[in-house]
Structures are given as C-alpha cells and as structure tokens.
C-alpha cells in the first residue's frame, strides 16, 4: 500500500509538472485571465450591491436576511470555488469527451493506475489561482468586517466544508462528464450545470421557496456556497455541516460507481 501511495503521489507530481510546463508559454493568457477575473468580480459585487440600496440610494431589502458583508462572504466562497474549477476541474473533466471521441481513452484504461484518478487529475491550470486567492480574501475579509471570530476551530471547519463543496462540485461534474461514454453530444449538459451553479453567487435564502428546495435537494447549490459561508460567520449548524459531508461522500461514491458502470459499456461496446 505504501508503494501505491508513492506511485500516485509521484504520478500527480509529474502530471502537474508537465501541465505547468505546457502553459508557461502563454503569458498573454495569464494577463487575460487576470483581467477577466477582476472584471467578473467587480461586476458581481456591483450587482450584489444593487440589493443593498446602491441603485436607489436607499437601504435596499438585502438578500434573504443576509447583511451586505455577509452576502460578500457568499460571493467570496463562490469566487473561490470558481477558481478551483478553473484550476482543476474544467481542464481535466472537459477532456473526457475528447478521450472518448478520439479513442485515446484506450491508453488511459491500459495504464496500471486508476482511470478516474488519471482523468480527474491529469492536468492543472494556474489560470484559476488568482481567483482562488481573491475569493479567499473576500470571504475572510468580509467575514472579519461583520466581526466573525476566525479562530483555529472555525477555520478548520471552514476548510472541511470548502473541501466538501469542492468534492460535491467535482462529483456532479464528473457524473455528467461520464455520460459522454454513451452520448458524446450530451457533453453540453455540463454547460447547463455550470450555468445553473451560478445560483451559488447568492445565499440560498435569497431565493423563493420553490427554488430554495430545488437548490438544496436536487442541485445542491446550498452546500456549495451558503453552508461554508455560514461556517465563516460562525453560525453553521451541526446538522447542516454533517449533511454537507454526507452529500459530498454520497456524490463521490456515486460518481465512482457510475464511472465503473459506464466503463462496462465502453469496454463491451466500443469498436
């Protein structure tokens, strides 16, 4: 088992080393990414401010009982997650369909290493790193502004819940990407997912009851941003934190089982 661990960590180092080597050529890209991030964040903050009276000069109704800095914490978590998905998820998961289409999935399956690991961790893109940093800063900065007590225990809980959100996001995305084994064309379904996840920019209580249920039970947007933001503000409840971990574990196991299931079809049907 120890040698297994070594093989996987060494492989991961090589994966990401080669990925970074491939991207250093494109400094211009980095500049564009930075500009895009700044623009997106400014735009999101601006739209958010409209609910707090920026538009009318008054006080505004706010969002679902969240104060202006509290809502910024949610936006910070969203930005952080978006950065994680640009860094890790999109570069890897968007390739699965290409592997299926071009048949290079064969090479992956013939490697003495877990194929889901290979497909999910093959590459890394530094483009999302600034977004991660800015998201973290916004999340913690806005939290401090409302007097959140960021002691070690809180930070640890936040870290665990953020990890759990990342896992949920990854597993959802991987589940959809897996369907490309059968229907190459439904690849666009992941775009639908991404569009729907934009709902995570706002706290879950900012939505009408129907959407709130949808975003908690069907598409777990609530666990992606609201729950970690509550943890920053020191008010996440035990059941919600546990539910987040449970949902993450459930989706992760589901994505694994579904991938195994899909491979059975790939390996019995491809020609």
């Amino acid at each position: 088992m120890a040698s297994d661990w070594r093989r996987y960590t060494r492989t991961l180092r090589r994966f990401w080393g080669t990925a970074l080597a491939g991207q250093l050529e494109y400094q211009l890209n980095l500049l564009i990414e930075l500009l895009a991030m700044a623009g997106n964040l400014a735009g999101s903050l601006f739209v958010l401010s409209l609910f707090y009276g920026n538009g009318s000069g008054g006080s505004g109704p706010g969002l679902g009982g969240w104060s202006w800095p509290e809502a910024q914490v949610v936006l910070g978590v969203y930005t952080l997650l978006d950065g994680v998905s640009s860094t890790l998820l999109r570069p890897n998961l968007s390739r699965i369909v290409t592997h299926v289409q071009e048949g290079t999935l064969d090479f992956v399956l013939l490697k003495p290493i877990d194929s889901q690991f290979w497909l999910s961790a093959r590459t890394v893109s530094p483009a999302g790193l600034p977004e991660i940093a800015v998201g973290l800063a916004l999340m913690l900065g806005a939290g401090l502004k409302v007097g959140a007590r960021l002691d070690a225990a809180t930070l640890a809980l936040v870290a665990v819940l953020l990890l759990s959100s990342t896992v949920i996001l990854y597993a959802l995305w991987f589940l959809l990407a897996t369907t490309s084994i059968w229907f190459v064309k439904t690849w666009n379904a992941t775009e639908v997912l991404r569009a729907a996840l934009a709902a995570g920019r706002y706290p879950i209580t900012a939505y009408p009851a129907g959407l709130r249920t949808l975003f908690t039970l069907v598409l777990p947007v609530a666990f992606l941003t609201t729950v970690p933001a509550e943890a920053v503000l020191g008010r996440v409840s035990g059941p919600w934190a546990l539910a987040s971990l449970g949902v993450a574990a459930g989706f992760l196991l589901l994505s694994r089982a579904f991938w195994r299931f899909a491979l059975r079809f790939y390996t019995s049907a491809s020609s």
């Binding site: 009276g53 006080s59 505004g60 109704p61 706010g62 969002l63 679902g64 729907a196 009408p208």
Partner: peptide
C-alpha cells in the same frame, strides 16, 4: 436564476423595496 433573486428581494421589501 436572477428572476428568483430579484423577485424574492422585491417580495421581502414590499412596494419597490428601495430597489
């Protein structure tokens, strides 16, 4: 999605709600 947020905010704040 934005309709959801705006309509909830509108409902929360009453008439025009300072929006």
């Amino acid at each position: 999605i934005m309709l959801g947020v705006w309509s909830a905010a509108l409902a929360a704040g009453g008439d025009d709600a300072g929006l």
